[in-house]
Amino acid sequence: MSTPQVHPVAPPRTAPVVVAFLVGALVAVGLGVYGSVHEPTFFSINVAGFSSPTAVKAWLATLAGVLALVQLASAAVMYGRMPGLRAPSWIGTLHVWSGRLAVLATVPVAVHCLYALGFRTGEPRVLWHSLAGCLLYGAFVAKMLLLSRRGLPGWAVPVAGGALFTAIVVVWSTSALYFFRTTGLTF
């Protein structure tokens, strides 16, 4: 009788995780530095049907927030964190596309914030908003870099996704929520 061969399992690779998070941190810091040294133009483009550029930003941030909730729910289903719920075949596609659309919705907001307003620190809400906006894109870059790698620790992508989700929530609550609380649900 022969002994079954045991193939060693490669340990999770942490170097790509460190590199991805470092690149993400560089992106976040780079955006913050750009926003700090760039002279704000205070110029923005209004979109037809909205009362102001701030209203456009608030609604796009809200769309990104709703899509981030879809991301959270679909990830929970994919990772088996919803007891009794079996992942349908389309859940991965929903997760990918809701993420793409969420980031796409944030791009005009980020461009306006960085170019027209810059990185601001005048009051705590604005400072948190500026920090979270930079973190959002750093976490996005880190997550995208991690998604293209195999053999990572199981926590790597969820941590990057969690940081991205948290950044979207903080950005939304320090901007869109503030806007809606002060002006109402206006367009």
Results as ranks from 00 to 15, higher is better:
T3I: 11
P4F: 10
V6P: 00
V6S: 11
H7L: 15
V9Q: 14
V9C: 08
P12S: 12
R13W: 03
R13H: 13
R13N: 06
T14K: 15
A15M: 12
V18T: 09
V19L: 13
L22E: 07
V23L: 07
G24K: 13
V27C: 12
V27M: 11
V27L: 11
A28L: 10
G30S: 08
L31W: 03
L31E: 05
G32T: 11
G32S: 15
V33A: 11
Y34K: 15
G35R: 11
G35M: 10
V37E: 09
H38L: 12
F43W: 06
S44F: 03
A48Q: 14
A55F: 02
A55E: 13
V56Y: 03
V56G: 09
L60A: 08
L63S: 15
L63M: 15
A64D: 10
A68K: 14
V70R: 15
V70D: 11
Q71N: 13
L72H: 10
A73K: 14
S74R: 15
V77W: 04
G84E: 05
R86K: 05
I91P: 00
I91K: 07
G92V: 01
T93H: 02
V96H: 13
V96M: 07
V96E: 02
W97F: 12
W97N: 12
S98V: 02
S98C: 15
V103N: 14
T106H: 06
V107K: 12
A110W: 06
A116C: 11
A116V: 08
L117P: 00
G118W: 04
F119S: 13
R120S: 02
T121R: 09
G122F: 14
R125V: 07
V126G: 00
L127T: 06
W128C: 11
H129V: 06
S130G: 09
L131K: 09
G133P: 05
C134S: 11
L135K: 04
L135P: 07
A139S: 15
A139D: 13
M144F: 00
M144R: 15
L145Q: 09
L145I: 02
L145M: 10
L146T: 01
G151I: 00
G151H: 05
G161C: 04
L164N: 07
F165C: 13
A167M: 06
V170K: 12
V171E: 01
V171Q: 12
W172M: 09
W172Q: 07
S173Q: 03
T174Q: 06
L177F: 02
L177S: 06
R181I: 02
G184S: 04
T186W: 07
T186C: 01
T186K: 09
